[in-house]
Amino acid sequence: MAEFKHKHIIALRDLSKGDIELLISTAESMREINSRDIKKVPTLRGKTIINLFYEASTRTRTSFEIAGKRLSADTVNITTSSSSATKGETLADTALNLLAMKPDIIVMRHSVSGSHYFLANKVNCSILNAGDGAHEHPSQGLLDMLTMKDRFGRLDGLKVAIIGDITHSRVARSNIQGLTKLGSKVFLAGPPTMMPPGVEKLGDVTVCATMNEALQDADVVMMLRIQQERQGKTLMPNTREYSRYFGLNPNNIKLAKPNAMVMHPGPINRGVEMSSSMVDGNQSWILKQVENGVAVRMSMLYHVCGGELE
């Protein structure tokens, strides 16, 4: 029987193929709970989960909160705009203070890449990464893979095009780590200013010169958000020009396989990375991604509670 032995989930890079498959299959089973009249199981009764968000989030924070509550854990949300971080408290001090209240899991989003590893060394509870800087966003990667598996029944051999600002995208990194471990082929496209050097060394990853090249015969087209809060003004001339070269629209989607899946981690800049007709069209799986997010996060919370200290 497959067992999950990690106490923390910080990056899909740290997980084996078997770990990822177990998290996804558990999420498939968890999904049934979300369709019941009584959407709750007693599994994590008595556990305390702190959602510590140093960056804005709607989907991920709500999704983690609902996931914890559906497993009967007590969830507490801390957003930094209303916390002591605004008074200058360091991450380490905040963590030690939270720890004094004996949480079992801290779910954190932080703008500094790798901050979760720093935190994991300081605390004795589980750490789940809800996004760290430009590093990883493992729950998003897992829910994207679950959504692709829903459609194709497998991940092995899929051609996945990821398009946009790869440099700043933790979503892209988690997807690349996870998808290549499970046998998918990843094709990246984006402005050269947004393409990190050496990204092809992460696995079965091809960097394409143009968006059309990446779209060619793709099973899945994943569009990334232009992160205007992270990049300076120098990476692209303006959003209109970006949209012309790297926006998804009803014309260039025809290069992909017929009825290819269109995905986006949200929030969407409509008319920039994709046209509204693509967001709302019948190839869009965007809301299914959000729906799967709850089940994936339930799976992650469930498995780290049984993990051993690494």
């Binding site: 029987m1 299959s25 049984g306």
Partner: peptide, 23 residues
């Protein structure tokens, strides 16, 4: 019915089992 999520030995530090689908 899959009873994994309703077990009474879930709170220990044992690795959690895979969860089957309840239909």
């Amino acid at each position: 019915v899959d009873i994994t999520l309703y077990r009474d030995d879930c709170s220990g530090q044992l690795p959690h089992q895979a969860v089957g689908i309840t239909e």
